[in-house]
Design a protein around this nucleic acid. Structure first.
Lengths: 245, 245
DNA sequence: CGATATGTTGAAAAAAGTCAATGGCAGTGG
DNA sequence: CCACTGCCATTGACTTTTTTCAACATATCG
């Protein structure tokens, strides 16, 4: 197993007031005064690509608010296999389990470069006591995570449809939450495989097919995005899956 | 589509003090006094087999504490296909989303006969304000649900292993949380298919094979349980899945 | 420049899906 | 009480999808 260093650069304390994500941010409901008091506890961090934000099994001492970039949650099974159980995009919260203070139940790894705000679990837990609005916000994040996980099960996991349509569905999910049309977070064939439960080869073949058909364009290795033809992708994603009632 | 009546029998208000599930129960942390005040809001209900407890998309006004029996959470997709996203056993909570008060995001359907305690979402939300212990308990239930969903993705969804080992894993998960060794909740081949994303035929073939090999015994159609040979099942569940790193 | 990832492609094998037909049991209604 | 019907589970034969194995291309990095 390859050892991956946890490395990040500190960019200063988070400045919630100027945060682009205000609206969806976890701390939105806090009044300005309280938020000001917390700011010194929050760190604005940058992680390089393919780096680990936290490890599965490690004590969950902090959660992260994703500001920019994409993160994969990888779960390593007892039999040594791994599976990507969720992808997070800007605005999502990682490591919610830190509120409860057990262990992280998956490893969080960056796909491209990532900027995230670190919030100590204890600080959030503290802020939640007596603050209904914040508590509610946390519950909503949990609900959202759960809903996402279940949607993955239904739409993305094998059996629901042939590989081709599942890849299309995945690509559509990789749209930036608030970016320009057709801009998709680029993930490698290996990751696509780990997400959909198919082999790299199958993933590669499907992606290659999409490129040939003009449904997907790769602006070059440098770019962290694909450019997809949503029309075409959507029609592939329909996936006349056949019999299943 | 077949119309399914929501029908249940009222068995009286819940008597938490005598509940076998006290320890794991949601309301455990409440002091006796407060609990006594709530009891009139809780109903102890019985649902016949194959009946719906709540529908996906319906307003989530109450959550349920499962006391006896098993429940499946079914998610109907836009393309008409369906998928079972989670199974619940005694002690689990269904419809947590009622705390937030949106819509149920899956349909809950009983497998066998079920006994459950109904808690209005508003009542729970009310009780949570100012009660940290209870709030924490709810968060824990969310965390548990999320963790389960992710475990399903990793272990049960196709691609992680051939159908045979996934069926074995599923059967092992169907053990009663606190029952006698080898007693497994019985689910039909069709449900196994919907859970694992395989066809009824494949599910049936695998189950038939297990029976032939003595890994599984069916005490008869009347019984809501299988009797499994955990040894054998576990060895099948290892599932030398091959290449995936 | 070699070394290590990562992406592609082909051909053969294995797994699962599809279609079709059969058997058994339970509940219904004569 | 018994035939009838509907619902599942089961099985076989055949097709499709996906995996596997192996080779090769390309790019990144020290």
């Amino acid at each position: 197993m390859r050892y991956v260093k946890i490395q990040s650069s500190w960019l200063g304390h988070s400045d919630c007031d100027s945060c682009e994500l205000q609206a969806s941010a976890l701390l939105g409901p806090l009044d300005a005064e309280l938020r000001a008091a917390l700011v010194h506890q929050l760190d604005d961090l940058r992680f390089p690509r393919q780096s680990v934000i936290f490890h599965q099994g490690a004590a969950s001492d902090a959660l992260f608010m994703l500001r920019d970039g994409a993160v994969k949650l990888v779960r390593y099974q007892t039999d040594g296999t791994q599976r990507i159980v969720r992808l997070l995009r800007p605005g999502d919260v990682l490591g919610l389990e830190a509120v409860l203070g057990g262990c992280y139940d998956a490893t969080a790894m960056t796909l491209g470069e990532v900027r995230a705000c670190r919030i100590p679990g204890a600080v959030l837990a503290q802020a939640m006591t007596g603050n209904e609005a914040l508590t509610r916000r946390v519950l909503e994040k949990y609900q959202w995570a759960l809903s996402e996980a279940e949607a993955w099960l239904g739409e993305l996991s094998a059996g629901s449809a042939p590989a081709r349509v599942r890849v299309a569905r995945l690509l559509l999910r990789l749209r930036l939450p608030c970016g320009e049309e057709g801009k998709l977070i680029k993930v490698g064939a290996a990751d696509i495989g780990d997400i959909l439960g198919i082999t790299v080869e199958t993933a590669s073949r499907v992606i290659a097919a999409f490129k040939r058909e003009g449904a997907l364009k790769d602006p070059g290795r440098l770019s962290p995005y694909f450019h997809g033809n949503l029309e075409l992708l959507r029609s592939c994603a329909q996936g006349h899956s056949g019999r299943r009632s």
